[in-house]
């Protein structure tokens, strides 16, 4: 999902940058508000951030033979809502852009938007839907994390298609080509990310049940166990 340094035309880079600044600002405010109200949540925010740090550092081989990164943003989105992940994604991406030549400063805005905004939004939406349909909590967490991962890569493909439309087939043909690169490779990784998120969420349920209850997870006895 890292669009390489310099690989978005300047107008696109500036537009995504502006969108990202707004999202990170709103996200910081939402984190501040949550921590002021309930300081004991700091630890869980740290865990959500750490989870994204680990998963986005792993470049994993996929069943297709290519390798790619998981995202780790689904967990934080489920716990703290979709806004909280934008600043966390910004920190991770800045680290990778400056020290790892992975992504870039000119593409930082676009990458924050896919990793820190769209992925978490989809993850949070999936979580709410699963709750509404009264699906088992593990299944809901799994689906939310996996779809957040896939949505991030879908967004990257769309951003690239908008910047580089196919000379013959336009944006849609170009989107198809970029999705061809990302989508299939990402599916096994997204599933793995879903399973890992369920594992850490189960642990949090067992040991941080009080904090989760403050966040609105009213766990029944059957949900408290996996």
């Amino acid at each position: 999902m890292h669009i390489m340094e310099g690989f978005l035309p300047a107008t696109h880079a500036v537009t995504w940058g502006a969108v990202a600044v707004v999202c990170v600002g709103v996200g910081l405010r939402s984190i501040n508000k949550a921590v002021k109200k309930q300081p004991e949540l700091k630890m869980l925010i740290g865990v959500a951030a750490a989870f994204t740090f680990i998963l986005s550092a792993l470049k994993l081989p996929s069943l297709t033979g290519s390798s790619s990164h998981p995202t780790g943003t689904g967990l934080g989105a489920i716990l703290f809502g979709p806004l909280a992940m934008a600043p966390i994604a910004a920190i991770v991406l800045l680290f990778q852009a400056i020290l790892l030549a992975h992504g870039g400063l000119t593409t930082l805005g676009a990458n924050i938007f896919s990793l820190g905004v769209v992925g978490p939004l989809v993850g949070y939406g999936t979580y709410r839907l699963g709750k509404k349909l009264a699906l088992p909590l593990s299944l809901t967490v799994f689906a939310a994390a996996s779809l957040a991962d896939l949505a991030t890569y879908g967004t990257t493909a769309l951003q690239l298609a908008l910047a580089f439309p196919d000379p013959l087939g336009g944006i849609s043909a170009s989107l198809f080509k970029f999705l061809g690169v990302f989508a299939v490779t990402q599916i096994p990784l997204a599933l793995g990310e879903g399973f890992l998120t369920v594992l850490i969420f189960n642990f949090m349920q067992k040991y941080s049940g009080g904090e989760l209850a403050q966040l609105g997870f009213h766990l029944t006895r059957s949900e408290g166990r996996l």
Partner: peptide
């Protein structure tokens, strides 16, 4: 191995 998807893009 086919390399990373970022490079393929």
């Amino acid at each position: 191995p086919g390399g990373g998807t970022d490079n393929q893009a």
